[in-house]
Amino acid sequence: MAKVSNRFWFQLHGWFSLPIWLIFCFICLTGTISVVSHELTWLTNPAARALNPDDLPEKPMPELISIVEQAYPTAKVSTAMNFEDYLVNAVIFTDSDKPFAIAYVNQYTGEIQEINQGMTFINFMRSLHGWLLFPWESNYSIGYYLVCLMSFVMLGALITGLLIYKKFWRSFTQPKIRTNQGKKTVLADMHRLAGVWSIWFLLVMSVTGLWYLIQAVLWHADYSLEDHPPLVSVMELPTVKDTPVRPLTFMDALEITKKKFPEFKSTYLMPPEHFRDTYKLYGEGDFIFHDKYAYGVSVNPWNGDIESVREPVQMTSLQTLSHIADPLHYGTIGGIWTKLIWFLFGILLTGMSITGFLMWGTRTVKAARKEDTPKEQETM
């Protein structure tokens, strides 16, 4: 009975891992590259490097927006983003001859180092990994669902793998790869060893992947996890015939935000799109497991009132999950060092999908030969 049960779990493990191994391997590989996409951008694009040879203090993001607006007087800035200390800030804008452009602004020198009018490597890899570049329609993408469903494959492969390898803890205390017993044994040992040491990583990827699936369903159902910042009341707008000028600047809004959150570091800014819109400032604080947008403030540009606030202590359970999923999935919780750990285990996970396929292929060919042998003997 034990042998039948073991065979069943082994077959189930194969079906979880192998029939779609190519898609699974591709998603693992693109995710691994996405983890270090910032670092690869720094290595391959000198214009994206935020060099600071004179050890200058970092300029606030509203000042970088002003620099772009001065360089392109007819431009309309929609967003400013901060990535890493060693990467430039990105100021996204449109202009008469630029339907979409990204200004790479050095946050230390204030120099515009490049104008990018295409897709960046970071966005390309995140999109390729996140939804396989399938189009988005009506708040959903088939590719996004397909990628999220891989979390079931990963979780199923983990559970069945542990049921097969009952004394898996030996790979922690007595790790071994037998190189003198043939290719089949080497592949099995490598697959088993990588799987055991990656248990925690597989769990993190599975759980965050399941959350992304839930999030996709919520998006598809038009359920908003975050409340939209309220509009300025019409009664608060100045009653003048000429186009009114907002008395508060983006820099004023940043100072108001820092009074609310002293440890606030801006990472994502959006200027008002119309007269009833607010300054929207998002950033990070002292909660390391939350993403770079866990703190948020919308500031009334006419009177300086804070219209809405986002902070971890006031988040609902779903909001908390949405803000801790990315740091856990991409390993950004501890900066470059945790990203390197996630990158290493991403390589292991990608390798496991390959070794698993090779093992399955070897057994399949061997089984096919055994089935063909009696037929050949009967013919003779």
Rank of each mutant, 00 (worst) to 15 (best):
T355R: 09
I33Y: 04
K241T: 13
C148H: 06
F93D: 03
K280C: 15
D326N: 14
K260F: 00
P57S: 13
T41W: 00
T179N: 14
L218W: 07
W360L: 00
E84H: 09
D242G: 11
G346T: 06
E311F: 08
S78C: 05
L128Q: 04
S34F: 11
G356A: 09
Y282T: 12
L231D: 00
R126L: 14
V105Y: 10
N52G: 03
P57R: 06
V207S: 12
E376G: 12
K259V: 08
T373H: 10
G296T: 04
L349T: 13
K260E: 11
L56Y: 03
V153S: 09
T74D: 14
A47S: 08
F24P: 10
D286E: 15
T249Y: 05
L43W: 10
L349P: 05
A325V: 06
Y279M: 00
K280P: 07
T30I: 11
D291F: 07
L348Y: 02
S96D: 02
V68T: 00
Q215N: 12
H220R: 01
G31Y: 03
T173R: 13
W136G: 06
N180M: 12
C148Y: 07
L210M: 15
F168C: 01
K167T: 02
A216I: 09
W302T: 05
T316M: 09
M352N: 11
R170P: 02
H323T: 07
E69P: 01
E226V: 14
G283A: 08
N303R: 08
G209K: 12
K375Y: 13
A103H: 09
W9L: 02
P62M: 11
P262Y: 02
E263R: 14
